[in-house]
Write a protein that binds this DNA or RNA. Structure first.
Ligand SMILES: NC(=O)c1ccc[n+]([C@@H]2O[C@H](COP(=O)([O-])OP(=O)(O)OC[C@H]3O[C@@H](n4cnc5c(N)ncnc54)[C@H](O)[C@@H]3O)[C@@H](O)[C@H]2O)c1
Ligand SMILES: NC(=O)c1ccc[n+]([C@@H]2O[C@H](COP(=O)([O-])OP(=O)(O)OC[C@H]3O[C@@H](n4cnc5c(N)ncnc54)[C@H](O)[C@@H]3O)[C@@H](O)[C@H]2O)c1
Lengths: 219, 219
DNA sequence: TATTTATCGATATAAATATATCGATAAATA
DNA sequence: TATTTATCGATATATTTATATCGATAAATA
């Protein structure tokens, strides 16, 4: 049990958003070379404010940092993983074994984050009953049965936009509790189901704004 | 020229993040059925605060809303697109024509956001000199030449994590001004280059936290 | 035409988040 | 061992973001 679960205030959304970056940074440090690191050093490397980093880390660290040394890297990694829930394995399935769906099926890196993709569903006879990266693609009609059987928590949507709501409804009926949506659609779900949109549109807007500002300065 | 460019304060980051959702929502409205919509109605449909929506829209709308009617849907769509920079076309290339890179190459939806992917680069002889969705995959060595030739602004990184920094450096040398990075790596770039990370880890952390909280409540 | 009303936009307040200050302390150094 | 110092963590302040209040107004209704 970490300090958060014991007595600390819930962690802010912004802090949560920064956590994966800290984790990535810490994992790339050479543990042979050093065992601990200060919030100041992390802040400097990640171009963040030093106090912000210190507060973020204090919020998840189980043991705290030490003056003149900082935080124990290994413990901090474990604390962040535990906080982010990467230690809890969640079963997931994909709806839509097309280009993107297959890329996700083939990616083994998700296990790092506790995501365990077990199977996929599709409506196209050309892909069903085949396996992709040792994961079966089932006909979409089998979704309720298989989801209940495998105790699936997360449904991943990679069907064309036009079918996303339909497939979403099927997921809800199949007992999933969260949806990871890659289709450019705003999904309607019951209150207790979480929809996490992977919205590339936001990234593209930020890129586009950066470029247009730069262009203007050069004018 | 919209009101922002004329005289208004710069728009907040949070407002920018919500814009793509407004745009998607507005695009799905039936223009035959209705020509205008109120901030209150949008807020209700998107589960957002009404005042927040009104302020967000006021920040980008060129003409403002009218009492009892709201905002003109068509104009609002155009205003948001212009604000997000989706009207400005930016040329891009992909480094890494593997599973994910090819999915991106095949996706034609990016043109909606002003992203124009022209070609890809790879080091694997099995994929180079082939075309994917009518876009050529060139040997990675040709990157500087082709990027300069095609006036590429954005470099998309879909190589394995271990090669991401290397490829990133090549992009910088090739004169790109922004990077869209899908590899789980924190890239080092010069000050004036923007790195936009497509960090699926954040989504997975949010999903995981949602599920773990739910589980606890049921205990 | 007068009245009502939904909605806007401006201004005010509240909440969340970021940054600054400073005393305490563990490790390094003299 | 005494002194210095980098860093922490607590508390304070500033900034950003979200929400509330309210008068003005264009459209609907009487
Ligand atoms: N490819 C990308 O890079 C990319 C990027 C961003 C977003 N997206 C979104 O992801 C989704 C998938 O994109 P894609 O490029 O993989 O498309 P795709 O056409 O390659 O794959 C879609 C798959 O969904 C299946 N399908 C269609 N209707 C179905 C249904 N009712 N039930 C089950 N399966 C069904 C199809 O048979 C196909 O295999 C789209 O919504 C797209 O907008 C894709
Ligand atoms: N596939 C996914 O769903 C997914 C999801 C999230 C993140 N990612 C990340 O995206 C990246 C690509 O994933 P993928 O599944 O497409 O991998 P992949 O192995 O299918 O593709 C990688 C491609 O990069 C090429 N490559 C390797 N080194 C290169 C170099 N030095 N120069 C040019 N090309 C080079 C390879 O030849 C290959 O074609 C990885 O960093 C991965 O972590 C992938």
């Amino acid at each position: 049990m970490n300090r958060d679960e014991q007595n600390k205030a819930p962690i802010s959304k912004q802090t949560l958003n920064r956590m994966p970056a800290y984790l990535l940074y810490l994992k790339n440090l050479d543990l042979q070379e050093r065992q601990s690191i200060s919030a100041s050093a992390i802040a400097s490397d990640l171009n963040l404010n030093e106090i912000q980093v210190r507060k973020d880390l204090a919020a998840v660290s189980s043991s705290g940092g030490k003056p003149r040394k900082g935080f124990d890297i290994h413990m901090l990694i474990e604390d962040i993983k535990a906080y982010l829930g990467y230690d809890d394995v969640n079963n997931a399935v994909i709806a839509g074994a097309g280009k993107l769906g297959q890329a996700l099926l083939c990616y083994d890196g998700f296990s790092e984050y506790g995501l365990n993709i077990l199977a996929a569903f599709d409506s196209d006879p050309a892909v069903i009953h085949q396996s992709v990266n040792a994961k079966m693609v089932y006909p979409i009609e089998k979704m309720p049965e298989i989801c209940h059987l495998l105790n699936i928590q997360i449904g991943i949507i990679t069907v064309p936009a036009a079918y996303a709501q339909l497939v979403c409804d099927q997921f809800v009926k199949s007992g999933i509790r969260a949806i990871w949506n890659f289709a450019p659609v705003l999904l309607n779900v019951p209150q207790d189901i979480l929809v996490q949109n992977e919205n590339m549109a936001v990234s593209l807007a930020i890129l586009s704004k950066h470029l247009s500002v730069k262009l203007k300065k050069n004018d």
